[in-house]
Simulated scan of single mutants.
Amino acid sequence: MSEKYGEVERLWADLQSNCTDELFQQPRDVEITSQDVLSRIEKVILEIITDLSKGQAPLLVIQNRSSWANIRFDDAVGLHMGSGSTVSTIRSDSASSVNRFALTLKVLSEVYKLVQSNTYATKRDIYYNDTQLFGSQRTVDSIIDDISCMLKVPRRSLHVLATSKGLLSGDLSYLEEDGTRVNCRSESNAISVSSNVCGIRNIVSSAKFVLIVEKDATFQRLLDDGFCSRLGPCIMITGKGFPDVNSRLMVRKLWDTMHIPIFALVDADPHGIEIMCIYKYGSVSMSFEAHNLTVPSVMWLGLLPSDIERLKVPKEALIPFKKKDESKLSSLRKRPYIACQPAWEREMVILHERRQKAEIQSLTSIAPNFLTEVYLPNKLHYGGWI
């Protein structure tokens, strides 16, 4: 049996080496219909049945979503899955993967029913259908992403939605897929990012720019200070740290619809820089859907490491580097997109040399309203954006 698996993996590698990237990444203008999804699921099941009829143990082969060997970089797209040869094999006759094999088929059957009936479910719905079987929500989440990657379809085409954690505010209104009108113009309350961003239509806005805010606390402070109306009109969005897919989809939706400048306001530390990079260039684990998630036009507004010295941020407001910060910074500097961002590299050199980081909130040590009344207005005026 091991010879069979070896041959399958060799054939898979040969297929990848002879195929163009279009097989592994659907362009944005190619519509994936429900029938396409159903047909691809049926093909997977047919292959399993064929193996069983031959007395062979079936298996599932999925491109490895955690391997940089499968990643290509294009400054117009970001990190996208290419024709790398690194794959994960989920075997039905292996003690280490038989459970994963069974759970993947279970989720595939749920997806098939959802697409066939044109209904939707959340990832939590699927998990709570059989919590003992799945064991954890994380297992369901990972399997859904594996299926999306295996079928080469955007996750939304599986009719499985994720609960959003992001927030929106500013000069923006739109219609949800069910016809509900959403107004984000309240100066005191933010709106949760839709769990079905792709169903949003009739976007109305006169915003001059979009501001991505790393942290919820900073987002709320800007909201309380009336930032969107004082320095706008504009739109603010936060993914509350590491962004969920819906927050990234929303930023992409705004870019596709409005084509206005998009800025990132993140901490001057390796973690903040990585979060900005995810919005701009994407992540390895979701690289198979890069065309729908990345916005390469995102600009780094602040907080810049060079701002720490320029603004004379008090030393007591700075945080010494830890080993994980050094490791993350070293990893970031090796990323393929840094080569086309020399200004970013200079900022990271400053971080490396100072071995100190600063949160956005450190600006309050200069003055309580420094961020809203001085820092952001000057940054935006200097760049000619307002």
Rank of each mutant, 00 (worst) to 15 (best):
S2K: 15
E3I: 14
E7A: 15
E9Y: 03
R10A: 15
W12F: 14
L15A: 13
S17R: 14
N18G: 08
T20C: 11
E31D: 01
S39Q: 14
I41Y: 10
E42D: 12
K43V: 01
I45M: 06
T50W: 05
D51H: 07
Q56Y: 13
A57L: 04
P58H: 04
V61H: 03
I62Q: 09
S66K: 14
R72G: 06
D74E: 09
H80G: 07
S83M: 12
G84K: 06
T89K: 13
I90A: 03
S96D: 15
L103F: 13
T104E: 10
T104N: 11
L105W: 06
V111K: 03
Y112P: 01
K113T: 08
N118F: 08
T119Q: 11
R124A: 09
Y128C: 13
D130A: 13
D130E: 09
L133D: 09
G135V: 11
S136L: 14
R138T: 15
V140D: 09
V140H: 05
V140W: 02
S142L: 15
S142T: 14
C149N: 05
C149T: 08
L151N: 01
V153F: 04
P154Y: 03
R155D: 04
H159F: 05
A162G: 08
S164T: 14
S169V: 12
S173W: 05
Y174T: 11
L175T: 13
N183M: 01
C184K: 02
S186T: 11
S188N: 07
I200T: 03
R201H: 09
N202G: 09
I203W: 05
S205Q: 06
S205E: 04
S206C: 05
L211E: 00
V213K: 02
L223V: 06
D225L: 12
G226C: 11
F227E: 02
R230L: 10
I237F: 01
I237P: 04
T238L: 00
F242G: 04
P243F: 01
P243T: 03
V245M: 11
S247C: 11
M250D: 00
L254Y: 03
D256S: 10
T257I: 00
A268R: 11
A268W: 12
D269Q: 05
G272T: 08
I273R: 00
I278G: 07
I278S: 10
K280T: 03
K280W: 00
K280G: 02
Y281I: 08
S283P: 12
S283W: 07
A290C: 06
A290Q: 02
A290P: 07
P296K: 01
P296F: 02
V298H: 00
L304N: 13
S306M: 07
S306I: 14
E309D: 03
E309R: 07
K312L: 12
V313E: 04
P314V: 08
A317G: 02
L332I: 11
R333S: 12
R335C: 12
A339S: 12
C340G: 15
W344T: 01
E345H: 10
R346G: 13
E347W: 05
E347A: 04
M348T: 08
M348Q: 11
V349H: 06
L351S: 07
L351D: 02
L351Y: 01
L351A: 02
R354Q: 09
R355V: 11
R355M: 12
A358Q: 05
S362A: 11
I366P: 09
I366C: 06
P368F: 05
F370G: 14
P377D: 10
